[in-house]
Structures are given as C-alpha cells and as structure tokens.
C-alpha cells in the first residue's frame, strides 16, 4: 500500500505541475490582440494588478453579483486556505511558529469549508436555473471535495490517525528516503481523493485558478488611446495584408 501511494503521489505531482505548466504556457503564448478590459477599468498597470488581486482575494465581481453565492464561495475557499496552511506542518521540519499558531484555525477552516461545500451542492440541486447549468462533472467535483473534507475532519476530530507516521511518509517522499504509510483505511481514502484532485486539476474547471490571472477583461490597463496595442500576428497582418 505504501508503494502504491508513493507512486500515486509522484504521478499526481508530475501531472499537476506539468499540466498546469503547459496550460500557463498556452495562456502566455496566445496574445490578446485587442484591448478588452471591462470598463470602468484602472488606468495604470498597478491599478490593474490591484483589480486582479481583489478578484483573487475578495471575489469582488461575485460580491457584486450575488451575496449568498459569495458567502458560500468565501466559506469554502477561505476554509480551504486555512486547511492548507494547517497542512504545511506535515511537509516541513521544523514547523515554523506561525504554522503552529494556525493549527486550531485550520480545524475551524475545515468545518467552514465542508459547510460551504454542502451549501454549494444544495444550491446546485435546488435552484432550477443552476440545476440547468450543472453537469455531472460539476457534482462530482463537489462530491470529491466534500469527501476530502469529511475524511480529513473525521481523522482530526474522531478517528485519529498516526499523524507522525503520515508526516514521515511525506517527508520521505520529498527526500527520496521512502517510509511506510500508516495502515488506516480513512487515511487511504483521504489521500486517494487528494491525489485524484491533483490529477484532474489541469484538465477541469479548476483551471479557474490560473485563468483569473490571465483574464484580459480584468488584467488589462485602460490606456487604448495612449498606447498602441498590437499583437504579433496582427503586426504581421498589417505588414503583409494577409491573415497569418
């Protein structure tokens, strides 16, 4: 079982990093030939960066749209961030003070995340217009995240696992000094689901994570009259009068 999980996590990491890398490379390579910021838009580069940051951190546009949905999204994403911070201690030794101090918040974060996810799932099933746009993969994604959250929360609160052993396993993976993974069915479930999440990440709607940074309607500066914006293929078209 330890070998299986070791291979699984190496594979998942490679797929995640390479898959995301290729996607980001595509987003970088393909130009945005026209100025299309959704206006009113910032007039400076710094302003545009701040706009993207607001989308990433406080979900500004979602807040404009729908306060309930925004609250559910915040519960899930902020909960997840706290959980992830809490998990840092399983991957580094010694554990920094900040991470130690954050441990209890990670537990509340986990609960917040699970509640948020159930609310998002309920919304998909109950609201007719949201049910219409929901496909099987949208439900599976929520179920996967709920599975990860619940298996984790169970281990933290009720069926404790050998966390020292888990940490040794992952430190071993990272230093190529392989250790045994504690034999615990709930842990197996948790880790298998996490690996599945890493594997589907670059091929699913989770691409909204890199996507937001490349969204031209959000990251472009409103300076169309001041600066001539010309994509490389458009410049070729201008020079040769034939579309490349």
């Amino acid at each position: 079982m330890s070998i299986l999980f070791a291979v699984l996590f190496y594979a998942a990491t490679i797929v995640l990093v390479a898959g995301l890398g290729l996607k980001v490379a595509q987003y970088v390579r393909v130009p945005a030939p026209l100025k299309i910021p959704t206006t009113p838009a910032p007039l400076t580069q710094g302003g545009a960066a701040f706009r993207v940051a607001r989308e990433v951190v406080i979900f500004e546009s979602l807040f404009k749209s729908n306060k309930w949905l925004w609250a559910m999204a915040v519960m899930f994403h902020f909960g997840l961030v706290l959980v992830l911070i809490r998990h840092v201690r399983y991957f580094i030794e010694p554990v920094p003070m900040v991470i130690t101090l954050m441990q209890p918040f990670g537990i509340y974060g986990g609960l917040l995340m699970i509640i948020g996810l159930f609310m998002l799932l309920g919304r998909r099933l109950v609201l007719p217009r949201i049910r219409y746009i929901t496909g099987p993969s949208d439900l599976l994604m929520l179920v996967l995240l709920i599975g990860i959250g619940c298996s984790g929360a169970l281990m933290v609160n009720f069926v404790h696992t050998d966390i020292i052993g888990v940490k040794a396993f992952f430190l071993g993976l990272m230093t190529f000094n392989w250790q045994k993974l504690p034999a615990d069915p709930l842990l197996y479930v948790h880790l298998a689901l996490v690996a599945a999440l890493m594997l589907v990440f670059p091929f699913s709607k989770l691409l909204h994570v890199p996507g937001i940074f490349f969204s031209p309607t959000r990251n472009q500066v409103d300076d169309a009259r001041e600066r001539r914006h010309l994509a490389p293929w458009a410049a070729k078209y201008e020079a040769n009068k034939t579309m490349p």
């Binding site: 299309i36 996507g211 969204s215």
Partner: peptide, 14 residues
C-alpha cells in the same frame, strides 16, 4: 489568436 478564448473556455466553474 485570442487569449480570451482558451482562458474563458477553461475557467468557467458554472
């Protein structure tokens, strides 16, 4: 040719 297309098509979470 248009970055908006792959980014918008990939990013939607429904």
């Amino acid at each position: 040719k248009y970055r908006s297309l792959p980014v918008f098509l990939d990013s939607c979470v429904k």
